[in-house]
Amino acid sequence: MNIEIILHAGLATGTILLFAAIGEVFAERSGILNLGVEGMMLLGAMAGFSTSLATNNAWLGLLVAMLAGGILSLAHALVTINFQADQVVSGLSLTFLGTGLALVLGEGLTGQHPPTIPIVDIPLLSSIPFIGSVFFSEHSILVYVGYIFAPLTAFYINKTRPGMHLRAVGEKPSAADTLGISVYGVRYFYTFVGGLLAGLAGATISLSVSPGWYSTQTTSGQGWIAVGLVIFAQWNPMRAAFGGYLFGMLRRFILDLQGPALIFGMTNPLYVNSNYGFFLQMMPFILTIIALVWGSRAASRKRIGAPAALGVPYIRGERGL
């Protein structure tokens, strides 16, 4: 086991969670809880993989993956925004729908090898000892995109006019409405953005981090971890990115723990036989639960909570407006 490898791999797998979680941050900041991330990711992973296979162009695959996630999210938007249905139920159904579609349409894709997103070194930066080899060399372009994506979204949400409108709609839609901001429009837009990013996260798996199509194993529940991360991150993109990388590294670390390999020069004391690996594979999900509890407790102490209107349909003219 090598700390450099764990960190390097953690950044790569963390990028998946980063995109998905930031997408969900956008949707939830507008007041729409979308539990369909897993379904949108899987559909995106399949659509990206299959497009890349058909066109021999990984970038086109990426684009189609995003659109697939985005279009699926519009179903959630329609049901929860226009019809004011329960967001939890709709989100769960979206996961079933997305998973089902991906499995049917992805039939026969296993074992294929389409072009993937290029892996590059960043000139100069990659030659810095340790830091260069962990952060700036042999990463997919998407990992580098992730580095700048998180601060950009944080800036967008906190320091720009559309970001301020987004926050207002999620906290107090009636205030936004009375000032002429279209609550439905904003919610539709950011639910769609959440879908685009979930699709991108899916394609980040199938076209970059672990290329290939392995049916439901492709995402293996990472969409759910992303949803949990949003709470852990207290709806803050920077914290979502940090949490994504942390979980990525943990996953890699746990992967190493499953084998009899050497850890820091000694034999793995946790290795008994290969079947015990299943227990270790549960760890990310248990950690998700712990992070949720810890994160929400810290949040309530610091008076940072979920967006006040999260999960609440907006109907103009209800008592209390």
Binding site: M164, R167, A168, E171, S174, A175, A176, A308, G320, L321
Partner: peptide, 11 residues
Amino acid sequence: VYQHFMLVPTQ
């Protein structure tokens, strides 16, 4: 000026 203030508390 609404009776129930139309203000975003976190802003």
